[in-house]
């Protein structure tokens, strides 16, 4: 089954690069934040798949189960998701303020208005 495992990692990298491309190439700030989220999710997949064991149950103790998945990545990613939405909210709030001050959220326009940014 290692063949499928390799494809797992390939798709993680594809998702990560899709997010990175969105952040670099798109000029709209909201689109950039979506790209950042896609990037972030690919890292989450990576962690969770490291914690996965074939045939392992979820890490809730039960009678007659001997093999559990690794709980540590779950804890890390669980908190990372909630912190991720908090940082997304700050980014979106900044976007709103930029729109109110400059009248645009397109990177090109902002650059023309204020060459120092």
């Amino acid at each position: 089954m290692s063949g499928l495992g390799i494809w797992n990692y390939v798709i993680f990298i594809f998702l990560m690069m899709a997010g990175l491309y969105m952040v670099i190439s798109s000029t709209n700030l909201v689109k950039k934040i979506i790209g950042l989220n896609v990037f972030q999710t690919s890292v989450f997949f990576m962690y969770i798949s490291f914690g996965y064991i074939d045939g392992g149950a979820g890490p809730v103790l039960a009678e007659g189960v001997t093999l559990y998945s690794n709980p540590l990545p779950h804890v890390l990613i669980l908190t990372a998701i909630v912190v991720g939405v908090a940082t997304t909210a700050v980014g979106l709030a900044l976007t709103i303020r930029i729109k109110e001050s400059f009248g645009s959220i397109e990177e090109d326009d902002l650059h023309k208005m204020d060459p120092s940014i």
């Binding site: 909201v30 969770i48 996965y52 890490p59 998945s69 779950h74 669980l78 998701i81 909630v82």
Partner: peptide
């Protein structure tokens, strides 16, 4: 991938709250 807690959080946060926040921004 047997991560029920994470799935829970992602469904509520990703599909719920952050989508709403982005729509409010738009």
């Amino acid at each position: 991938l047997a991560a029920a807690d994470v799935a829970f959080t992602e469904a509520a946060v990703g599909a719920g709250i952050s989508t709403i926040l982005m729509l409010a921004t738009l």
